[in-house]
Write a protein that binds this DNA or RNA. Structure first.
Lengths: 250, 250
DNA sequence: CGTAATCTTGACCAACGTCAATGTTCGTGG
DNA sequence: CCACGAACATTGACGTTGGTCAAGATTACG
């Protein structure tokens, strides 16, 4: 499950099924060629691997092709905050290509497949294809809206609501990628990960999960998440799905 | 202090001193002309005015020219979360021009002067000037980094640290705009605003302010903020200033 | 089969929210 | 200049939420 698998799982951009999903912006032939040219490697890493470490200056970025990852901050105190879960089709380390040394870490939550992209060529595409740059800006503005909502959840919801919010939001993101059925999806996060995502201690995150289960709202067990009535849970925690826009993908 | 003052305070983009600050990206003559053309009005609003209301679909966006504003979410419960303080030179409602109906509100914290920009022309500039789109994307990625740090503060710091973080972060942003001296700056937020920014109740935000004052770290009174030793406070709360990049301004 | 990691729970304590009362500031009209 | 009221600031008392510690149960894996 290391780099030696690269060829086994390699996919040419032109054949990539991920980018054909409705969620993603269609590519012009020219853009597709540019992206195919900048793709240096198809890399598979094991669960737990650090994909990006905070402070590293890098000349490459990634598209998560398959699997789950988490962006996080670590404090000197040892505490950790998970900033966001990264799902297939999303960019990793794009910020460090455009702004220099990254401020967050990214680690694989499951076995993860990554498209490795040459930073210089990414910048070149941006500066040569204005519609692409504009679409990437749209995607980034949409990310900001999600981040705003997460900030509100951390600042203003109680423990049970925070966990519930995190679960439906993730469920909804998976649904849009065709990675969830009506009430169920994979959910590889451990209890400690959930706690670090919603700003609770591990013990209290447990209590919140127990309460959600007791209320028949959500159940996390055996690596999968079941939400009997997603609309009800969403209403309960004040989650409002964003209107679907076609996200830029690299 | 209403629209009638527009002419009194009107500034032509070519003469604008704000955009000449080091913090902001210099403009090519072509871009400057494009921005001057899209500027429809120079609008002055009183403190407390709603500049943008959540859910409104708009065809214009703004650059905050002078004064302070706050972006916020309101929950059905009546609770409010301030997402960010908006300072001179920053865009307002750019997201709703590019993505449709906004998801947050923006209100003026002080008397505020706004450059009103035509949305269509903003989009046109983006799609015609790739370097500008790329720079705006950089600025947006920098905003994301700040948002990540705020999320971490909400999730992982205690009340006193949260308030301290919010104060130094804002102080540092003002300093970069030349709006603060070594230890002091204007600070027009009320106690309730501070509480809503850091996810505390008003009463507890008070206690945190009292503790910060008792520890000699920060003092908010009479509409101004004094931080005896900003570096010390920053270290105390884990605030790390982002490297300065030249921000795109419209 | 054994060891380490993770999950789960109870008991207890600290942080934070709520309620309610008092003080302070500031603008307005007399 | 003063009287008044409204909005805001400040504080104490008390209840609730969430953190910490510690132990036992379960799972994953060599």
């Amino acid at each position: 499950m290391r780099r030696s698998d690269a060829h086994a799982t390699g996919v040419r951009c032109a054949d990539c099924m991920l980018r054909r999903k409705r969620l993603f912006r269609p590519f012009s032939p020219g853009e597709l060629a540019a992206v195919a040219a900048m793709k240096q490697q198809h890399l598979v890493v094991a669960a737990g691997t650090d994909i990006v470490r905070s402070g590293e200056r890098v000349r490459i970025c990634y598209t998560l092709f398959d699997g789950w990852a988490a962006r996080s901050h670590e404090l000197k105190s040892g505490a950790r905050q998970i900033l966001d879960v990264v799902l297939p089709g999303e960019a990793i380390a794009l910020d460090s290509v455009l702004l220099g040394a990254g401020t967050h870490s990214v680690h694989a939550l499951t076995t993860a497949a990554l498209c490795v992209l040459d930073g210089k060529q990414v910048v070149a595409l941006l500066e040569n294809s204005p519609t692409f740059a504009a679409d990437l800006l749209r995607t980034q503005l949409e990310n900001e809206r999600r981040a705003d909502a997460r900030l509100t959840m951390l600042g203003r919801l109680n423990g049970e609501e925070r966990v519930g919010y995190f679960l439906v939001e993730t469920f909804e993101r998976l649904r849009r990628r065709g990675m969830a059925d009506e009430t169920r999806c994979a959910f590889p996060l451990r209890r400690a990960d959930i706690a670090d995502a919603v700003g609770l201690s591990k013990v209290h995150a447990m209590r919140a999960l127990r309460a959600l289960r007791a209320h028949g709202l959500a159940d996390v067990s055996g690596g999968s998440l079941t939400i009997a009535n997603p609309a009800q849970l969403a209403a309960h925690v004040g989650f409002v799905p964003l209107p679907t826009t076609r996200r830029a993908i690299l």
